[in-house]
Amino acid sequence: MELNTIKPGAGSKKPRRRVGRGIGSGLGKTAGRGHKGQKSRAGGYHKVGFEGGQMPLQRRLPKRGFKSHNLKFNGEISLTALELLGQDEVDLLMLKAAGLVAELVRNVKVIKSGAITRKVVLKGIGATAGAKAAIEAAGGSLA
């Protein structure tokens, strides 16, 4: 095989369709656009979601819900993950280094999921009421 003999696979390349080039092409006269109307004309089309003047679906349906853009800066960690981390003092940088929270995260909260038996001191990390009770019951604290 030589570089000058390389060709694409059979059937992988199709010639582009040339419209409006006479009867013999099969796409002469109206060039596959049908007769008259907005879609047959050059430059004539409509906006995405336009329904011919009828009230569009996205305006007929009620607005609902809200998603804060700040959610990406919040993270959470379970009691089980704290237990497996195996550290006596835990802070945000340690959690990022261990890969338990994303690099973007600024605020971390411990949630009561699982159990904890070891003493852990949290620095600059929040906790839910249930998680705080579980940490303090194990001899830990929140700084």
Rank of each mutant, 00 (worst) to 15 (best):
L82K: 00
S12H: 04
L27K: 13
T80C: 02
P56L: 05
K47A: 14
L57T: 11
V110P: 01
P56T: 07
L61A: 03
M1N: 15
L122R: 00
G53N: 01
G75E: 05
Q54K: 14
K119P: 11
A129V: 07
V121E: 02
G26K: 10
R41N: 09
A134Q: 02
R60I: 08
E51Q: 13
A138V: 04
K96V: 01
P15E: 10
S12E: 14
D91R: 08
D88S: 09
S40Y: 01
F50E: 15
L122P: 07
T5P: 12
L92W: 02
A137V: 05
S25Q: 09
G20V: 01
G26V: 15
L57E: 15
E103F: 14
L57M: 09
K36A: 14
M94G: 08
V101R: 00
L71V: 08
G22R: 15
K39T: 15
V108H: 01
A102I: 03
K63Y: 08
R59T: 12
V108I: 12
L84H: 11
G22W: 04
L142K: 06
G32A: 05
A137R: 10
G75L: 00
R41G: 14
L122Y: 10
E136M: 10
D88V: 11
P56C: 04
D91N: 12
G11T: 00
S141D: 14
L92V: 14
L3R: 15
G114T: 10
G26C: 07
E83H: 06
A97Q: 15
S141G: 08
A31P: 13
L100M: 02
K13F: 06
N70S: 09
M55Y: 06
M94A: 14
A129Q: 10
G124R: 13
G99W: 07
S12G: 08
G49R: 07
L122D: 11
K29I: 00
G75T: 11
K14E: 11
L79Y: 03
E83L: 00
K119G: 05
R106C: 00
G34D: 05
T5L: 01
V90T: 12
T5S: 06
I6K: 04
F66E: 13
R41S: 03
K39Y: 10
G28W: 02
F73W: 12
A131E: 11
F50C: 07
R60W: 00
G26D: 12
R60N: 10
G32M: 05
R16P: 15
V101K: 02
S78Y: 12
I111A: 04
